[in-house]
Computed example of a mutant assay.
Amino acid sequence: MSSNSPALPGAENDPLASPGEVVVDAAARPVRRSFMAAYRARVAAEYEAAPRGNKAAVLRREGLYQSQIREWARGRDAV
């Protein structure tokens, strides 16, 4: 195993791993998502136009948090 690939501790004793297979920890290098300005504007407008009971559905569908929408709206309004 090379020293630059992160592997789980004790991976060499993993009964599910085949011999010579390296088990890589997927959480070792998280990737931050980025959003295009048009997407942010569209989702923020859709969230704000949604009736009170349907706002959470927009967040769930898009995989976002309310704090992200608030931040996007604040940035939009500051311009």
Results as ranks from 00 to 15, higher is better:
Tyr47Leu: 09
Gly10Arg: 05
Ala37Phe: 08
Ala45Trp: 01
Pro6Val: 11
Asp25Thr: 06
Val79Phe: 09
Ala38Trp: 06
Val24Met: 06
Ala27Asp: 14
Ala73Cys: 02
Ser34Val: 12
Glu12Leu: 13
Met36Glu: 13
Ala45His: 04
Trp72Lys: 10
Ala50Met: 05
Glu62Gln: 11
Tyr39Pro: 00
Leu64Phe: 02
Asp25Ala: 11
Arg60Pro: 00
Arg61Ile: 00
Asn13Glu: 08
Leu64Asn: 03
Ala78Tyr: 06
Ala7Tyr: 09
Ala11His: 15
Glu62Trp: 06
Ala56Met: 09
Asn54Gly: 08
Asn13Cys: 01
Ala38Ile: 06
Arg40Val: 01
Asp25Trp: 07
Arg61Cys: 01
Ala45Ile: 00
Gly53Tyr: 05
Val58Leu: 05
Ala11Trp: 15
Arg40Cys: 07
Lys55Met: 05
Arg61His: 10
Phe35Tyr: 15
Ser5Ala: 12
Glu12Ile: 07
Ala44Pro: 03
Pro30Gln: 03
Gln66Asp: 09
Val22Phe: 00
Asn13Phe: 07
Gln68Ile: 01
Ala45Met: 04
Arg52Tyr: 05
Glu46His: 05
Pro6Arg: 09
Pro15Cys: 03
Asn4Ser: 15
Gln66Ile: 03
Val79Glu: 15
Gln66Val: 09
Gln66Ala: 12
Glu71Met: 01
Arg70Asn: 12
Ala17Gly: 10
Arg70Val: 11
Ala28Ile: 01
Glu62Met: 04
Arg76Ala: 12
Gly75Tyr: 01
Arg33Val: 06
Glu48Tyr: 00
Arg33Thr: 07
Tyr65Lys: 13
Gly63His: 05
Glu46Val: 04
Asn4Asp: 15
Glu62Ile: 02
Gln66Leu: 08
Leu64Tyr: 04
Glu71Phe: 01
Pro19Asn: 11
Ala57Tyr: 02
Glu21Gly: 05
Ala44Trp: 03
Val43Trp: 07
Pro15Ala: 06
